[in-house]
Design a protein around this nucleic acid. Structure first.
Length: 275
DNA sequence: CGAGGTACCTGACAGC
DNA sequence: TGCTGTCAGGTACCTC
């Protein structure tokens, strides 16, 4: 479900609500959501009575650092949620792990499709939790420059959409923000990366940063089930130019928006504006 | 390196 | 009603 902006919104809220809290109990109702350690008892044991000292994000991964040199890594994949609840509230049928914190707050790790994963790694000798160690650059970081982007794209023969979705190439983009950035840069999703002009790469670089920043500002995109930790929906869906607008009119030129399977994903683009 | 398929799961929705 | 097929914001793994 969530892409970089949704994960960023979630992390910012967690920072406000659960920073410096201590984990007093962990209830595992669906063990398959734990990536590692294999031993579930060890997972719980290493979390118990530990304090949350830092909350951050890397790509679509949520990083929760504890005061015992351990890091809890959470990837929501599709349909995952982290919900902050009062400890008197009941569990949803899709709540699979509950982290009980001091102060009467529970963190519900919810995942309808059970694709989400939690990993507990060592901060000093981090394991590659589900690809965390192989992430490409952070698109919103000041380290990620347009020159940087140009050199990454150089000689790549893959479709541009496939590169943007590839977390090893660039961290955090998913299907929605990729289509939106490509529309704003006027590039078709199936263009081969090595055919992009300097100008197009510059436009795409700007478009990526603009759509991701706007996504954060609007609190993320909600179609069916994305909600933040407070159970509230995002508002970026109001700003979408192409995603989920099949056969509707392009806001720039009035043509019908196409929907086509590209890179194995539903892709939305304007056949006139995007070349 | 790149493309395409399958798998992991549940639920919503369209069409018959 | 109920069946079937399709689709879903993600990623790993496999083959060619």
């Amino acid at each position: 479900m969530p892409e970089l902006p949704e994960v960023e919104v979630i992390v910012r809220e967690l920072r406000k609500r659960i920073l410096n809290k201590r984990i007093i109990d962990v209830e595992i109702r669906e063990p398959s959501l734990i990536g590692f350690p294999e031993n579930r008892d060890k997972f719980v044991e290493e979390l118990l009575n530990k304090k949350i000292i830092t909350l951050s994000r890397s790509g679509k991964y949520i990083l929760i650092d504890l005061d015992n040199q351990k890091r809890l890594v959470i990837h929501l994949r599709m349909s995952g949620k982290l919900l902050i609840k009062d400890n008197l509230e009941d569990y949803d049928k899709h709540t699979h792990i509950i982290f009980k914190l001091d102060g009467g707050i529970d963190l519900h790790f919810n995942s309808i499709r059970k694709f989400s994963r939690a990993y507990l790694i060592d901060s000093n000798y981090p394991q590659n939790a589900g690809g965390l160690a192989e992430l490409g650059p952070e698109p919103l970081s000041s380290d990620f420059t347009v020159e940087n982007f140009k050199s990454l794209l150089k000689n790549r023969k893959a479709k541009i959409k496939s590169l943007l979705l590839n977390q090893k190439f660039l961290a955090g983009m998913g299907n929605i923000y990729t289509d939106e950035a490509l529309f704003r840069a006027e590039i078709r999703p199936d263009r081969r990366a090595d055919t992009l002009s300097e100008r197009e790469i510059e436009n795409l670089y700007r478009a990526i940063r603009i759509v991701l920043s706007a996504g954060i500002k609007y609190g993320g995109t909600t179609f069916s089930d994305y909600v933040n930790t407070m159970g509230q929906k995002g508002n970026f869906q109001q700003e979408l130019m192409v995603y989920q607008r099949k056969d509707e009119k392009c806001y720039k030129c009035g043509s019908k928006i196409n929907r086509e399977k590209i890179c194995g994903r539903s892709s939305y683009y304007c056949p006139t504006c995007q070349q």
